[in-house]
Amino acid sequence: MIATFSFLARRLSQGALIVFLAALIVFTLLRVGPGDPARMLAGGLSDQASVDALSEKMGLNDPFLVQFGKYVGGIVLHGDFGQSYIRSESGLSVGGGHGDDQTRSDRADVLSLLGSRLPLSLGLALAGLGLALLVSAPIGIYAGLRAGKWQESLSIMGSSLLVSMPSFWIAGLLVLLISIKLKWLPAVGYEGPRYLILPAIVLAIEMAPIFIRTWSSAISSMTRRDFVRVAPVRGLGQRQIFSRHVLRGAAVPFINTLGVMLTSLIGSLLVIEFVFDFPGLGKLTVEAVLQRDFPLVQAIAIIISAFFVLVNIAVDFVSGLFDPRLDY
């Protein structure tokens, strides 16, 4: 119990430091790049004086570290990630606050922008991940139990083929076949749960082969372990050996892969949402980058790296529960 607590405390404080440094790096990168946000906001035809005034008001003339300090302070003290440079708040609910400030009030709050897109991305992620897990577990476990036989070769061949299909290409192919030729499912945008199906399938195609491989190699290496091989001598039935030893041991590599996949899920979502014009966080990210909407990019980068850190801590923690021999 105390060990658990100190593990969490240590890893969380390390994680907080890492996220802070990641934020600093992204903040720096965005500041040293070309482009003047004040000029962009004021509009191309504004005179220099009003651009300068806006720049002063936005704090862009402050020293770099002061800007960063204010930004981090806003996040830590008020949960305020700032306002989008580009997007107006029309159609979005914004928490009160900056009503006195004309330059800021008509721009969308970054956090509520993200919040409005999150549910769709989360839905897509869960649907894709769920589908991938559902398909991969039986195939991978079966292939692992048949290690060295044709079933395993078939599963390796199949997963190699699937993993070699880039998601943006397979998405186009599926749209061509299922939406254009067969007219079974809608492909572009989001107007209801039916619009989730194709993107979720593409996401699953990307993830399933990796889960299949993890299961099959973990299971087959567990069945070769001494404690599994001698288990029948101890009078254990096959069911017991499978569930108590093989499956439990294979759970650790599986959880590690799940952690890796959760973090790489973000990149996949970004591409898939872009392809399907799916209005989630991924598409918002691509748009924010192309429009140089720095506050939005920054917030997304910080939140994602926090997510990375948390996933890694959770993976180590849960692995420890499955295999007590692992040291946190």
């Binding site: 390390q14 890492i18 996220v19 440094l21 990641a22 790096i25 992204v26 990168l29 965005l30 040293v32 790049g33 070309p34 482009g35 973090t263 973000i266 990149g267 970004l270 990210t285 691509v286 980058v289 192309l290 140089r292 990019v297 997304i300 980068a301 994602i304 790296s305 990375f308 850190v309």
Partner: peptide
Amino acid sequence: VDIQMSIPPIILAITILGLA
């Protein structure tokens, strides 16, 4: 290495490539 790995590759890529 830890810090570098906590920045998602795709975010790193789009941040840098969005600038230049």
